[in-house]
Simulated assay, not measured.
Amino acid sequence: MPLSFLTADRTFEAAAESALPYDDRERWRRPYRPGPWRVAAAALVLLFASFVLFAAVALALTDSVSSGGAVFAAALVVIAGALRLLRMGVWVNGRGLRQVGFLVTRTAPWARVVSVRTVQQPVRWLGLPRTVQGQALVLVRKERGAGEPAPLLTTHTLDFLGRPAAFDRAADVVEAWAAECGRG
């Protein structure tokens, strides 16, 4: 069973005439692959979940079923967290742009998007409070009081750390989606 959230469509790598080489524009898709740091972090979390599952079985067999069930539930929460970690990122379709975070998902219809552009600015390193100089793909909305443009992608996230070419390619594809779908 392929995990559609784990692998992005490979068509963005092929040299295509259109920036949007998709037949079905109503399906949400991530225009880039998850980075190796994100996949490694999720793999470590899943490894930890396997130990917790083993502990749940051991507790259920030796101690009590209720304590084993509680540890099993904790393992399921850890597994759900790992899957959510893999799903995080920017997703696009013909209707709008979706930024999936660990706990919060924000969707902006293309009608409310003024621009999507790449800028040089201080960005958060791996989502931590420490900032470094880097590039960010920012989303400017039409809403009043929107404040500062929200960064969608940065060069120092789990997906693009140490991969500037991948960031440039992903930013170009998201900008192309905004240009194409924002017209209508």
Rank of each mutant, 00 (worst) to 15 (best):
V57R: 12
T118C: 04
V113F: 02
V140I: 04
G127N: 11
V174M: 05
A165K: 06
A178V: 15
W91T: 00
V138C: 10
T131F: 02
A74E: 05
V123G: 15
V90R: 04
G68M: 05
E143R: 05
G127K: 07
T131N: 15
V138P: 05
A49T: 02
V100F: 01
V52P: 00
F102W: 07
W110C: 06
A74L: 09
R183S: 05
S50P: 00
R141V: 02
R117T: 06
D63L: 15
A165P: 01
R141L: 04
F72P: 01
C181Y: 01
A166T: 00
E148W: 00
T107L: 03
P164C: 13
A179E: 08
N93D: 06
G134N: 06
P109W: 03
A165R: 11
L53E: 07
V104S: 12
S115V: 03
L85F: 13
L76N: 08
P164D: 12
R84L: 11
F102Q: 04
W91R: 03
P164S: 11
P129K: 11
V138S: 15
V114T: 07
F167W: 02
Q99L: 13
V100W: 00
L61W: 08
A150Q: 09
V100A: 08
V114N: 04
G101S: 00
A80S: 06
E148K: 08
V78Y: 04
V116P: 06
S50V: 03
G96E: 07
L86R: 00
T154R: 14
V140T: 04
R130F: 02
R98L: 15
F167M: 15
W125F: 11
L128E: 04
A150H: 13
A55K: 04
T107F: 13
L59T: 09
D159K: 07
A80D: 13
G184V: 09
F54M: 11
D159V: 03
R112A: 02
V78D: 12
A75N: 11
L76Q: 03
V78L: 12
R112N: 05
A55T: 09
C181Q: 08
Q99N: 05
G162R: 12
R95T: 15
G94P: 06
G94K: 09
R117P: 01
T154Q: 15
V65M: 08
A146F: 01
A60D: 14
A150T: 14
K142L: 08
R84F: 03
K142N: 12
V123C: 06
T107Q: 07
E175K: 06
A171V: 06
L61T: 15
Q121K: 13
R95M: 12
D63K: 11
S67K: 09
V57A: 10
V92D: 09
E143M: 03
K142A: 05
R84V: 08
Q120L: 14
R98Q: 11
L161D: 01
A73C: 14
P149M: 10
E148A: 13
I79T: 03
G96H: 05
V140A: 07
P151K: 15
T131Q: 14
V132Y: 09
